[in-house]
Computed example of a mutant assay.
Amino acid sequence: MGHHTFDAAHADRLEDAARRYRYCSREELLGALALHGTESVADLGSGTGFYTDDVAPDAAHVHAVDVQEAMHDYYRAKGHPENVALTTADVADLPFADDAIDAAYATMTFHEFASAESLADVARVCRDGATFVVVDWSAAGDGEDGPPLTERYDADDAATMLSDSGFDVERADERVETFVAVATR
C-alpha cells in the first residue's frame, strides 16, 4: 500500500484553497494541534507550504519537511514565513534530535510515507506529550479525488500504525473521502 509521491510538476494544484480546505480546513488543523505559539512543529510532506503557512503564525518554528527538493523550490519562489525552515528529508530519516519536536502533522501525505520505520522516526523526534495530527485520503473513500484507493489507509489502519509506533490515539474518524487521526506521543 501507499508510498505514492505527488508529482512536483503539478505543485500549483496544491495551492487551490477551496479544494484543500474542503478536506481539511485551517481551523480544523490548528484546533487539533492546539498550539500555544512556543512550539517547534514539523509539517511532514509540506509540499508547497500550503498548510505550513497556516500553522506558522501559531508556532515558534516550523520545519517544512518534504522529500522533493522541487517542492521546496516552489515554496521558496512563493515565499515562506521567517519562522519556517525548509528541510529536504525522507520521513524515515528525519534530521532532528530525539525529542526535538513539540507537534507534527501530515496533511494528505500519510499514504506517501506510512511505514513502521517512518512512524518510529516520527516518534523518536517527538517529545513526550507531543501531538501528531494526520489528515489523509481514506481507503474507505470512493477515490474520486486523491490517490487510488489501493494506495490509501483507513482511519482504523492509521490508528493501529500510530499506536504500534508509541502514540496514544485520541481519535481516528472517517469523513467524506478522508480520515483524521489525532495522537499523542
Score class of each variant (00 low, 15 high):
residue 2 G to I: 07
residue 3 H to D: 15
residue 4 H to Q: 10
residue 4 H to L: 12
residue 6 F to A: 12
residue 8 A to Q: 10
residue 9 A to H: 14
residue 9 A to V: 01
residue 10 H to K: 14
residue 10 H to Y: 04
residue 15 E to I: 01
residue 17 A to G: 01
residue 20 R to E: 14
residue 20 R to P: 01
residue 21 Y to V: 06
residue 30 L to S: 11
residue 31 G to T: 02
residue 32 A to F: 12
residue 33 L to D: 08
residue 33 L to F: 03
residue 37 G to C: 03
residue 37 G to R: 11
residue 41 V to N: 07
residue 42 A to K: 05
residue 42 A to Q: 08
residue 47 G to F: 12
residue 48 T to N: 00
residue 48 T to M: 03
residue 49 G to D: 05
residue 54 D to M: 10
residue 56 A to Q: 09
residue 58 D to A: 11
residue 59 A to Y: 05
residue 60 A to C: 05
residue 61 H to F: 05
residue 61 H to P: 00
residue 65 V to F: 02
residue 67 V to F: 08
residue 69 E to D: 13
residue 70 A to P: 11
residue 73 D to T: 13
residue 73 D to Y: 04
residue 73 D to Q: 12
residue 74 Y to A: 14
residue 76 R to L: 11
residue 79 G to R: 07
residue 83 N to V: 01
residue 86 L to I: 12
residue 86 L to S: 10
residue 91 V to L: 05
residue 92 A to L: 06
residue 92 A to S: 15
residue 97 A to V: 02
residue 99 D to N: 13
residue 103 A to H: 12
residue 108 M to V: 05
residue 109 T to A: 15
residue 110 F to V: 03
residue 111 H to Q: 13
residue 113 F to A: 13
residue 115 S to F: 03
residue 117 E to I: 00
residue 118 S to G: 15
residue 119 L to A: 04
residue 119 L to R: 00
residue 121 D to L: 02
residue 121 D to W: 00
residue 122 V to E: 02
residue 131 T to C: 09
residue 131 T to P: 12
residue 131 T to L: 09
residue 131 T to G: 07
residue 132 F to K: 04
residue 133 V to G: 07
residue 133 V to I: 10
residue 134 V to R: 06
residue 136 D to R: 08
residue 138 S to T: 15
residue 138 S to R: 08
residue 139 A to V: 06
residue 140 A to G: 07
residue 144 E to I: 11
residue 145 D to A: 07
residue 148 P to K: 13
residue 149 L to N: 03
residue 150 T to W: 03
residue 160 T to A: 13
residue 162 L to C: 00
residue 166 G to Q: 06
residue 167 F to W: 07
residue 168 D to E: 13
residue 169 V to E: 00
residue 170 E to A: 14
residue 172 A to M: 01
residue 172 A to H: 03
residue 174 E to D: 08
residue 178 T to V: 14
residue 178 T to E: 06
residue 180 V to K: 09
residue 181 A to H: 08
residue 181 A to M: 05
residue 182 V to T: 14
residue 183 A to N: 03
residue 183 A to R: 03
residue 184 T to A: 06
